Amino acid sequence: MGRKNYLVEGGSGTGKTAVCHELRRRGYQAINGDRDLAYQGDPETGEPVAGITGTAVHSHHLWRVADVRELAADQREPATFFCGGSRNLASFIDLFDAVFVLETDVETLRRRLDQRPPDEWGGQAAERQLIEHLHVTREEIPPGGIPIDASAPLARVVDDILRHLRDGGPG
């Protein structure tokens, strides 16, 4: 949907959904990939998989690649932000002019996870353990992304992302 396409990535609890909503509020085209593009699938084949529960949900959290490609090819908007994370990012990362990585300290992460209801991802103890492990190891964060301090107030986080675009930064 954009002549320029940007990915807003980061671990669970870093604020990807909040950033998506704020970008939309400000009039930008923003897609919540975790809600609008995601499904549970085999990370190797992409085939949908049913009946996955617990922390396995995370490792099977994929985005529909054809839909991502179609949205990224649409040139009607000057910029489109794809917000969220997926285990098949390598299948479409080439579509993005830049990747912004939301980063936060562990105290902020824990405070945000404490606010999640039990039926939301990160609301269960095992899910929270995985989130905290991934936060420390950064093993699912795409390399080369532009770090954004997501422990700051939401307006400043989005301002920082947009400042990179205005200042002749990425894309």
Rank of each mutant, 00 (worst) to 15 (best):
Ala56Phe: 10
Leu95Ser: 06
Gly41Asn: 07
Val19Thr: 04
Asp160Val: 04
Asp114Phe: 02
Tyr28Gln: 00
Asp114Ala: 11
Asn5Ser: 14
Gly15Pro: 11
Thr17Lys: 05
Thr14Tyr: 01
Pro48Ile: 13
Asn5Asp: 14
Gly2Ile: 03
Glu103Cys: 05
Thr55Gln: 12
Thr45Arg: 08
Gly46Pro: 10
Val99Asn: 09
Gly2Trp: 15
Asn32Ile: 00
Ile141His: 12
Leu89His: 08
Glu140Phe: 15
Arg138Ala: 05
Val136Trp: 09
Ala155Asn: 13
Lys16Gln: 03
Thr17Ala: 03
Arg166Gln: 11
Ile131Tyr: 03
Phe100Trp: 02
Glu103Lys: 11
Ala155Arg: 11
Glu77Phe: 14
Arg110Ser: 08
Arg76Gly: 12
Leu165Met: 13
Glu70Ala: 15
Arg111Gly: 07
Gly46Phe: 12
Arg25Phe: 05
Gly46His: 08
Gly84Ala: 02
Ala152Val: 00
Thr80Trp: 04
Cys20Pro: 03
His21Ser: 10
Ile161Tyr: 06
Pro117Arg: 14
Pro117Trp: 00
Arg166Leu: 10
Ala50Met: 15
Ala152Ser: 09
Leu102Met: 07
Phe92Gly: 00
Ala18Tyr: 08
Ile148Glu: 00
Asp149Lys: 03
Asn88Ser: 06
Thr17Ile: 04
Arg69Trp: 08
Ala73Ile: 05
Glu103Leu: 07
His21Trp: 02
Val49Phe: 06
Gly13Arg: 01
Pro78Asp: 15
His61Lys: 14
Asp159Cys: 03
Thr14Val: 03
Arg35Gly: 13
Trp63Cys: 03
Val157Gly: 08
His58Arg: 11
Arg3Tyr: 09
Leu113Glu: 05
Asp119Glu: 14
Val8Met: 01
Leu71Asp: 01
Asp74Glu: 13
Leu134Asp: 09
Val101Gln: 04
Arg166Ala: 12
Thr17Cys: 00
Ala18Ile: 04
Gln75Glu: 13
Ile141Phe: 14
Pro142Leu: 00
Ile93Arg: 11
Ala90Pro: 00
Arg112Val: 03
Thr55Val: 15
His58Val: 13
Glu140Thr: 15
Arg24Tyr: 01
Pro170Val: 14
Ala72Glu: 06
Arg64Leu: 10
Glu77Ile: 00
Gln29His: 13
